[in-house]
């Protein structure tokens, strides 16, 4: 077992230099690092001295520093965007002491298939600020799809427009504090009796995550009374692997039912 070297930079510029070293990666909450048992890690950069724990709203854009914990996001976001889906998703995530430890940056980089962060971020079409090898602003989807972006790169924060859409969040679990077998995020904008815009994201399926763009297109512009919710679950194009919480077929059924329920809820029809 090789010795791990720790770095405690105080300025971002130092981080950029340290990131160039071989297999030296950021440490935020450390919960993911421990879970992966330091695989492919020779050094850790502690980010706690970098003031990356800001959370503010600027010109209608919410900016969240990478070092905010789930707990802090819930606390602070409740004040500036009380209806935001992240408040529900993150306050139901893990447990009280873990929410005090798990960070936004670590959770985007780690992106476990039970993530309660990534569904909402994808639905919010959030952006990431990166420094290091791939400096710049990237849509969260691009970061997720292009693994290269993780290399020698630090996430400093995330950004999104906290549109006041109706939202729904569901976690499929065996017990209340279980990690989610899958989760569903729905964001929906209504005007009069019409669906103006909708985004639907699921995490935990075979492809890790899925945005149901076809379904979104089908729903967009529809009169709420015309939406045939009952058909949606059955025809949902998604598949699952593994046996947690039941067979893939059952989990798919469950996902369909809960998606329908979510839509009914946001459409406020029963």
């Amino acid at each position: 077992m090789n010795e791990i070297e720790w770095f405690f930079p105080e300025r971002i510029e130092e981080v950029i230099e340290i990131l160039k070293k071989d297999k030296v990666v950021p440490h935020s909450g450390g919960t993911g690092i421990l879970r992966s048992d330091f695989r492919r890690i020779k050094g850790l950069i502690d980010l706690s001295l970098l003031s990356l724990d800001y959370l503010q709203s600027n010109n209608g854009i919410v900016e969240i520093g990478a070092m905010n914990t789930y707990y802090r996001v819930v606390q602070k976001l409740s004040q500036i965007a009380p209806n935001n889906v992240l408040i529900k998703s993150l306050s139901d995530s893990a447990s009280t002491p873990l929410r005090n430890r798990i960070t936004i940056g670590g959770s985007v980089a780690y992106f476990p298939i039970w993530s309660d962060l990534m569904g909402p971020l994808i639905a919010l079409e959030a952006g990431l600020s990166l420094i290091g090898e791939y400096k710049g602003d990237y849509p969260v989807l691009e970061y997720v799809r292009n693994r290269e972006l993780r290399n020698k790169t630090l996430i400093t924060g995330i950004r999104f427009k906290p549109d006041n859409w109706d939202s729904y969040y569901y976690r499929a679990t065996r017990t209340e504090t279980d990690y989610a077998r899958f989760n569903i995020t729905i964001l929906l904008k209504k005007s009069n009796n019409r669906i103006e815009n909708v985004r639907i994201v699921m995490i935990g399926n075979k492809e890790r995550f899925k945005r149901f763009t076809a379904l979104e297109e089908y729903l967009k512009g529809k009169n709420i009374d015309r939406v045939k919710i009952q058909e949606i679950g059955k025809n949902l194009e998604v598949s699952f692997a593994g046996k947690k919480m039941g067979s893939p077929e059952y989990v798919k059924h469950l996902a369909g039912v809960e998606l329908e329920r979510g839509l009914s809820r946001v459409l406020a029809i029963s």
């Binding site: 065996r174 017990t175 209340e176 504090t177 279980d178 990690y179 947690k244």
Partner: peptide, 11 residues
């Protein structure tokens, strides 16, 4: 305990 679930206060 990650996958062998026992009840918590919320259950």
């Amino acid at each position: 305990f990650w996958d062998y679930k026992i009840y918590t206060t919320l259950d």
